[in-house]
Amino acid sequence: MEAPPDNDVLWARSLHFTHPDGSPGLAGVSLAVREGEVLAVSGPRGSGKTTLLRCLSGLVPVREGEVWFNSTPVHTLGPTHRERLRRDRFCWIGPEPALVPELNAWENAALPLMLRGTSRRRAKATALEWLERLDVGEAARKRPHRLRQSERQRVSIARALAPAPTVLFADEPTAPLHRADRGHVLRTLTSAARSHGITVVLATADPETAAAADRTVTLLDGRPVRTVHLPEIPDAGGRAACSISV
C-alpha cells in the first residue's frame, strides 16, 4: 500500500462500485485531487459522477479500491469515523438546496458551526459574513420559502463554506438554475473556494460549468476517459427537427 504524494489531499485508486441493486456504478476510477484546486468531474448523466463523489466523501462504504484523504485510508473507516470525517473535513452541496425550512437563512448557514459546538455569536458572525460575501446578505433573515432558488442555493453554499472545510463536494450545484444565475453561483463558489484554499470536487454535466474548474476529469459509464466519443445521434426519421415555440 503506497502512500499518496504530499500535495494530493484526496486520492482514489482503482475504485469500483456496484449499487446495492446490482447496477454498475464505477469501474476502476483512479484520480488525485491536489490541495486547493477546483476539480471538475464531468460526463453525461448516469456516468457515475455522483457515485464517485459519494465514494470519495465517505457517504457510501468503498468495498473495492482505495480512497485516501490526507493519508487517512477512508476505505477502511467505519461509519462513525466517516461521519466524523464528513462533519469535520468535508462539506456537501447537492443539486437541491436542502435547507432546513424552519430556520432563516443565517441560521441555516450557521447550523453546521453550531452543531460543532461553536458559540452562537461566533457562528452567527461567520454565517452573516459568508452570506454577505455570496450576495445574499439582504436575505439573511428570510426563511427559505421566501427566497428564490438561486438565493437558496447560495445560502446552501454559504452553509457549506462557513465551517471552513478541507474539501467541498459540489454535486451539480447549478443544475436547477437558469444560465445567468448559474454563472453567478458558480463564480461565487469557485472564487470563495480559491480565496480560502478550499479544495473543490465539482460534478457537472455542463461543459460551461466544467470550464470554470482548474482541471477536468471526464467519466463515461463509470470509467475516466480522455475524450468522449459518443455515437452520432441518428437523424430522426426524415422528420423536421421539433421546435418549441414559447
Partner: peptide, 16 residues
C-alpha cells in the same frame, strides 16, 4: 424526512 436526511448529510449527530 427530507430535512432530517439533509441534516444527517450535514453531519448532525443523531443524538442532536
Amino acid at each position: 424526512a427530507e430535512t432530517t436526511a439533509a441534516l444527517l448529510r450535514l453531519g448532525a449527530p443523531a443524538t442532536v
